[in-house]
């Protein structure tokens, strides 16, 4: 006995079947937009990014310095405690070299690939990473464990957004 008879339906179409109008279909777009309240912790985080600084929050119970800052520690489930400035340097925990855009379209020939990375921020607890992009680096030179530093937009261009940091670039301590 086999399961074959209990596999029913799933009639495959090709893109051509649709493009050539062999089947009926309808299209619609929601075309909606959102604006998000930032909340208390992220409002401060973004305000400090505008000032060219990264701010974190501490939990005095588990002793973590948490970035991005949050009003409660999700591990101890208690209100977080103190605002703490951390460095704008860190270590690459992991990275990718991405040739695909968000909607699955491909980057144009010659365009620099996207260089996302998780960066463990100096001054925050170990392993406390944020997602950002890398720049001013040849993709083949990127290594896990590499030290990097934030490259900020000029103060007058900063808007209070995570993109006030343009990217992180390799950095040698002097």
């Amino acid at each position: 006995m086999s399961n074959r008879q209990y596999i029913q339906g799933g009639i495959g179409l090709s893109e051509d079947d649709i493009q050539q109008g062999k089947v009926f279909f309808a299209e619609d777009s929601l075309n909606c937009r959102y604006a998000w309240d930032m909340g208390v912790a992220i409002e401060r985080y973004l305000r400090e990014l505008k000032n060219g600084r990264i701010i974190a929050k501490s939990c005095n119970e588990c002793r973590r310095i948490m970035v991005p800052p949050r009003m409660f520690c999700e591990l101890c489930f208690r209100p977080s405690d103190d605002w703490v400035f951390v460095q704008d340097t860190g270590v690459v925990n992991t990275f990718s070299i991405c040739y695909v855009n968000w909607d699955a379209s491909r980057i144009k020939p010659g365009e620099t690939p996207h260089l996302p990375a998780v960066i463990e921020i100096d001054g925050a607890s170990k392993g406390m990473g944020i997602m950002h992009r890398l720049g001013e680096v040849d993709p083949k030179d990127i290594k896990i464990g590499m030290r990097v530093k934030a490259v900020w937009k000029p103060a007058e261009e900063r808007t209070g957004a995570i993109t006030d940091i343009k990217y992180f670039k390799p950095y040698q301590e002097v």
């Binding site: 179409l13 649709i18 089947v23 009926f24 279909f25 309808a26 299209e27 619609d28 777009s29 929601l30 909606c32 937009r33 959102y34 604006a35 909607d103 957004a161």
Partner: peptide, 14 residues
């Protein structure tokens, strides 16, 4: 966000 668009759509077969 500056790029506050999410230009996705849906296509429904009948």
């Amino acid at each position: 966000p500056e790029e506050n668009t999410f230009p996705v759509s849906n296509r429904y077969t009948t």
